[in-house]
Design a protein around this nucleic acid. Structure first.
Lengths: 348, 348
DNA sequence: ACCCACGGTGAGAACGTTCTCAACAGCCCT
DNA sequence: AGGGCTGTTGAGAACGTTCTCACCGTGGGT
């Protein structure tokens, strides 16, 4: 009924072989460049392939070779600059090695993540890079690993899985921040973090607490805030912490969205930075340097995180059987103008 | 030599069938839920599958069904918030429909793009969404389309390809910007755009020119700047345009990176915004509202761009054979505090 | 009692490759 | 002259599914 003749079937290896007057086996040999073949045959086959516009069917190839040259990548949200940059690191390394990447957003939802991991497994990815959300356990990851598909975790790490992991030294980073603020005389230092992302945030909280202890500053519960993961929530918490009876003189945020919200909150509350409140953010995004004052931040080696994960994964795929390793990357603390000494009025 | 026994071969449909005491055909029927089968058999098979931890091999399935449930997505750079958001739109729609997305960065390089499109084709994607870089022509896209794989272009559109496209009304957007600035008394309006991205930028340039004409403002060549696509280059051009003998009183930038650079450049040049120079950016990113003054921008419906592309592509995949269509989405002009009337000193 | 339809099932082809193996020719070496 | 090696080739199996088809039994309609 409907005319659909314009879609003629794609030429197959058999078509090429016939046109070249050789067997399928021979055609495959010359087009895939293995085994041996005579120059004349090579010429005939390549000519036939070109003439037909032959393109190999990777699916069929994968069926037999058992390798898809595809990597799975599961992140919370590709729109988050953190994951976007990590993804870029993964993609670059993968691409250079001739691998493609299958991307899935989990939105930090364990169910979505589980389904995604299964689907990617079904699609026979050669390996998986994941920023795991599920705190409950990684049965789905263990399943993959058990079937021989290597997994590399990034940013967070689920214990009990035989897999490599690339993380950042969050505790040290947070400790360093507090040290800096304490040296400037701050004693009312707020921590603004987000719910979820358990592992990462917990480490940053731990570092915060260690930092306070080292500086001899008592822990104040009203200064430790867990906001929903939205800009608005961060704004609210920042404003709240600045309007306490004894307000915070410094706010440390543990990721880029919270940092944005805190900056916004400080401005809206009419607090001058750093005179009335010092701000320290996480992740060195572009905006942190065009804002006034530019933001003091913990810069994570995000691109390297992704690149290292992909590199490690490819090593595993190539057959590396060494025991699983967790690689911890160092952060860089960049002091800019958003942090300064406590104002005389608020001191003591 | 090396012990690798821990990787036992993945169970196949045949294993399930044997354990359940039925044929492969029957096992396939119950696990894929087509045809008919008795309740007892269904129970036996599902039990066997569960016991073995059976997971279907999507590759084998795709071989026979001819569909991979995978979409290709080619963008310039996933790190660019514009593409990240569009990708999110694509991924959301795709995911909801049971499709996965294979992501490739082209870096605006035609050769990389061509190779990527070919590879994705080889991998038998069911459809492709692409922000095409190659101005030279879309032979690689035509090739795909010719083989029956639908293609949807986003943001830019290569002429002569039988494919749908989702774009934004760039001319109208730029015209609107100039109209706004002209109404504020500006006559020295600079356009800061980037090299490459031909189609999009050309449309914005056209809109700029139309806007000037409509306002009766003569075109000044020294105010039309094409920078390299880096923040630094944008900063330089912005500074340059502000230190002309007869400096620009307004700067219109045509994408988010240029906007960031221009904002930076105005600050570095010590020009107060909007008193000495008005700024209009493209793309409504988060930072545009925490910066002082907040930036007047052209907001593109980026998420919708990606979502619409995916929606259209899925329709094609489902068999829609209607003639190719180009859908043009409208932009929103958001006036914030970075634009204001020309200063009395510079006026006239 | 006969026929037909129908639910349930299995055998085997098919998808498009790669890869193993055997066959064959030509050559060198003894 | 005979044996073995090397390079080139083709036949056919294999990968793990889905799907077509034929078969069987059963039950209902005539």
């Amino acid at each position: 009924m409907t005319r659909r003749a314009r879609t003629r079937p794609t030429p197959t290896l058999q078509d090429v072989a016939e046109l070249a007057g050789v067997s399928v086996a021979t055609a495959s040999r010359v087009l895939s460049g293995y085994g041996s073949s005579s120059p004349e045959v090579r010429a005939k086959v390549t000519a036939a392939a070109a003439k037909l516009g032959y393109r190999r069917n990777s699916l069929a190839r994968s069926m037999i070779t058992g390798t898809t040259h595809t990597l799975g990548l599961v992140v919370a949200d590709i729109e988050n600059p953190f994951f976007a940059r990590a993804a870029r690191g993964v993609a670059d390394v993968a691409h250079r090695a001739g691998y493609e990447v299958l991307l899935v957003n989990s939105d930090e939802d364990p169910a979505t993540e589980r389904a995604a991991v299964r689907t990617l497994g079904d699609k026979q990815v050669d390996g998986l890079i994941i920023a795991p959300a599920s705190a409950d356990g990684g049965a789905h990851l263990a399943e993959l690993v058990g079937r021989g598909t290597p997994v590399v975790q990034i940013d967070r790490v689920l214990p009990g899985i035989e897999s490599d992991a690339i993380v950042v030294d969050n505790e040290a980073a947070a400790r360093r921040v507090i040290e800096h603020l304490a040296a400037l005389g701050h004693r009312r230092i707020a921590l603004l973090t987000s719910q979820g992302l358990i592992h990462t945030n917990q480490a940053r909280l731990a570092g915060y607490l260690q930092g306070l202890e080292a500086a001899g500053i008592p822990v104040a519960d009203d200064l430790i805030r867990m906001a929903q993961y939205t800009r608005e929530a961060a704004v609210r918490e920042a404003e709240a912490v600045l309007s306490l009876a004894e307000p915070a003189t410094a706010v440390f945020t543990t990721d880029n969205l919270m940092s944005l919200g805190a900056f916004d909150g400080a401005q809206r509350a009419g607090r001058s930075v750093p005179d009335e409140v010092s701000l320290v953010g996480f992740d060195d995004l572009e905006w942190t340097t065009i804002v006034r004052p530019p933001l003091t931040v913990v810069a994570q080696p995000v691109y390297e995180l992704g690149a290292a994960a992909a590199t490690r994964l490819l090593e595993r795929i190539e057959g590396d059987e060494s025991p699983a390793r967790t690689i911890t990357l160092a952060t860089t603390f960049i002091v800019r103008a958003s942090t300064g000494p406590v104002a005389a009025a608020t001191r003591a």
